[in-house]
């Protein structure tokens, strides 16, 4: 019996080797297959996220349109009451240097040039307040079809 087994030993070892290597190869290939499947899924998810980021970027750009920001900032500016440092009651309190902004005010280019020079050269005007501290009515930003991102999206399907 042992003698007979000896004569088949080579075949038995080869068979076991084939089975083990085949099984190992199968496990490895299955693992690679699974990993690739996961990778594909992740790729697809990354792509979907990329599209979502695109949509969010588009919405951000839409919501920060200069026109819209201007409207909102104007509405905000009108809703804030002036502080004491911003009130200027006498023309004489305005600096003759056209480049030096009055205290408390930001430098906004004057669209009426030579204003200060004219005042200084000609007769000084009556001391009337040039800035009214009366609060202005709060301006509401109207929500129209054009400033709503969803409305904008409603339209893009209808391609030119």
């Amino acid at each position: 019996m042992i003698k007979a087994m000896r004569s088949y030993m080579l075949i038995i070892i080869m068979g076991v080797g084939v089975i083990v290597s085949g099984a190992t190869l199968m496990v490895v290939s299955q693992d690679v297959y699974d990993k690739q499947k996961i990778l594909k899924t992740m790729d697809r998810e990354a792509l979907m996220t990329e599209w979502e980021i695109r949509a969010l970027n588009a919405e951000l750009a839409f919501l920060t349109q200069p026109e819209r920001l201007e409207e909102i900032s104007m509405a905000m500016a009108q809703s804030i009451s002036p502080s004491s440092g911003q009130e200027v009651f006498m023309i004489s309190s305005v600096s003759l240097n056209p480049y030096a902004p009055p205290r408390g005010l930001s430098l906004i280019p004057d669209r009426k040039p030579n204003f200060v020079r004219r005042v200084s050269q000609k007769q000084a005007p009556a001391p009337t307040p040039i800035y009214s501290p009366t609060p202005q009515p709060k301006k509401q930003v109207e929500k129209t079809a054009n400033n709503d991102f969803s409305s904008m999206l409603d339209n893009i399907g209808d391609a030119p």
Partner: peptide, 20 residues
């Protein structure tokens, strides 16, 4: 997919547009 212009008509002549 569709082309979307977040700035609307502000720069329509400069940016241009695409076909469907």
């Amino acid at each position: 997919t569709r082309r979307f212009y977040p700035q609307g008509r502000t720069a329509s002549h400069l940016v241009g547009h695409t076909s469907v």
